[in-house]
Design a protein around this nucleic acid. Structure first.
Lengths: 196, 196
DNA sequence: TCCACTGATGACCAATTGGTCAGTAGCAAC
DNA sequence: GTTGCTACTGACCAATTGGTCATCAGTGGA
């Protein structure tokens, strides 16, 4: 990911590097502007190449999305552990992850794409949700697990929307630390909910 | 007499009716497919007119959005009343409203449009949030009002996303009644939260 | 130095789409 | 019927964009 001004005369012979640069550029672009508003030329420009090359490497815009967006799911491994402190761990892991990418996490890209009815993104999102359900399944006790996990997911989606997509209001200006605290409390309320 | 096959035979001389039909079609289309994926021709077709007429009436796609999407704000009036039962009232009002429109409420259209970085939609959304904050302000006691209202809003956004945009998972298949109950509990947890 | 290989370019294409506008057709009054 | 009005149509346009491909140029090997 270089941000050179003009089309630098790139050293050649580094196809893998360029491929990675394109993927990185795509991730950022999709997260920042959504699938529809991101053009292949956008991505190419950010990566310092021509759009022809992008298509040559990835075949189509959709395949580019597919290659760029799926994030290392490893983070969710934090779920394992004492159910008592689970809400706090989820909150911390979520906030840290978003902060690391400066708000252009693939999760944001996926939400944006799903909101535009991109079939590909919906499929990815489904997989992601199923995976995370599976993780929770071993950790959380009590009935109606699915419903509570879905509610936690929805809450996180809403927070992400407010903070990283809409980017306005208290949730957007709140410090990471305060967000972790607030999120911990709210997630606890949802997760420990004993329903009807 | 030429009575076209597909397009309605439409009696003329009812410009207001047609205008309304276009607005209705626009609302549905924007809610179902998002701003970017909705074409002026889509809307025109749904309303049984040509895209030329749509543009003639509303000037541009953006102005059409602006004319169609802002929803009657009246619903939020339900907020007033005993703070004790507020969560339940919010939950009921929300679920009823979404159910009435069969999931193509303007709120959905706005979320989709905001997720695509439509400036117009972001402005509308800002106004809507400010209005609702104002309503809550008279009703809810305690400190950090803004943060708690924002959290409630975020939760509702997330639920809307899961149930009416992504349309998959427990939140999507849950009955209206169960959703009201679950939402009531979760909103209560957020609203009554005594924070740091 | 010359050659072969392939990463990379950029011209080109077709489809889509928002937007314009001159002309048409339905309606009412005379 | 004729005339006048205007809602409405559909042809047209320009810009955008995803995608293709002939051609070029940097690189390593002989």
């Amino acid at each position: 990911m270089n941000q050179d001004a003009a089309p630098t005369k790139k050293r050649r012979r580094a196809p893998e590097e360029r491929r990675a640069a394109i993927l990185e550029a795509a991730r950022a672009a999709f997260a920042e502007r959504g699938f529809a508003k991101t053009t292949v030329r956008d991505v190419a420009h950010r990566a310092g190449v021509t759009h022809g090359l992008v298509l040559r490497h990835f075949g189509s815009k959709e395949q580019l999305f597919l290659a760029a967006v799926p994030s290392p799911r490893t983070l969710m491994a934090e779920v394992a552990g004492d159910p008592k402190t689970l809400p706090a761990r989820i909150a911390r892991a979520y906030v840290r992850r978003m902060a690391e990418s400066g708000g252009s996490d693939p999760f944001v890209a996926m939400l944006r794409a799903v909101a535009s009815e991109e079939e590909t993104a919906k499929r990815l999102f489904t997989v992601m949700q199923e995976d995370s359900l599976e993780m929770y399944r071993h950790v959380i006790p009590g009935p109606k697990l699915e419903e509570r996990v879905a509610a936690v997911g929805a809450h996180l989606i809403g927070v992400t929307f407010s903070r990283y997509i809409f980017r306005s209001g208290p949730l957007a200006s709140m410090s990471d630390e305060q967000l972790v605290r607030q999120l911990t409390r709210h997630l606890r309320g949802i997760l420990l909910d004993q329903d009807d």
